[in-house]
Design a protein around this nucleic acid. Structure first.
Length: 220
DNA sequence: CACCAGGCAAGTA
DNA sequence: TACTTGCATGGT
């Protein structure tokens, strides 16, 4: 029987420590979490560089920036008009509820803050949890597309499992430690980038021998 | 050329 | 509730 800890050990042995999130400040991590929605990280990097050059990686500056100017600055991240609005929604929340103070925001009870984040238009479960784990340093397990694919293709969860069922699968099996949650999600993205894509390359995957019958359980 | 990327919300029935 | 569609740039 394969446990989720076995999977972690294999991924860690193969890929090593991932040093996530790839961002300097808490604000940069939150901005990145929105910009990376259904988008390659490479496209987000240029957008964040542009924001830094424009001096926009700051709560007050973002709040003061016009929507159209913000949209042009983050153009390379794709869905740029949509994401400009989503960034504005998050910043407005930060300014109005916490006076633009991230430490004050992160001092909020985790369950309450999660509900508040989910109430913001443009922030769903993965974005909220990414912010909580990687920006706020809270003990929250992040689930993304790759995570679902890895578990479903290996038959470790039923194909119809939703976000919260997948999240519970990890939380109920693993030691509940922030560092483990942090590293595990990053490792799942890494194996996703290399192998567990829509057209998977399972041959050299560190989890290849765990496939049921050596076959991919196709659920898409 | 087609396909995909570290989602989410709104519309339809 | 359960599908479907729009959003968009940039790499393979």
């Amino acid at each position: 029987m394969t446990t989720m800890m076995d999977v972690y050990d294999r991924l860690y042995s193969h890929y090593g420590p991932q040093q996530w999130w790839p961002g300097e400040t808490a604000l940069e991590i939150m901005v990145g979490a929105i910009l990376v929605q259904n988008t390659a990280w490479k496209n987000v990097e240029k957008a964040i560089t542009n924001l830094k050059e424009q001096g926009l990686l700051d709560p007050q500056a973002l709040h003061a920036c016009h929507l159209e100017e913000l949209a042009e600055t983050i153009r390379s991240a794709g869905y740029y008009r949509l994401k400009a609005k989503r960034l504005k929604n998050l910043i407005t929340f930060l300014i109005e509820e916490f006076d633009g103070d991230l430490d004050q925001m992160f001092a909020t009870d985790t369950t309450t803050l999660r509900e508040q984040l989910l109430a913001i238009n443009g922030i769903g479960p993965e974005t909220a949890d990414s912010i909580l784990l990687y920006a706020a340093n809270k003990r929250v397990f992040v689930v993304d597309t790759y995570t679902a694919r890895v578990l479903k293709r290996h038959g470790w969860i039923w194909a119809e499992a939703d976000y919260y069922q997948i999240q519970d699968h990890f939380v109920s099996e693993l030691p509940q430690e922030i560092e483990l949650y942090n590293e595990y999600h990053a490792l799942l993205v890494s194996v996703g980038h290399h192998h567990c894509r829509k057209t998977p390359k399972c041959e050299e995957c560190p989890l290849a021998d765990l496939l049921p019958g050596g076959q991919i359980v196709d659920f898409e």
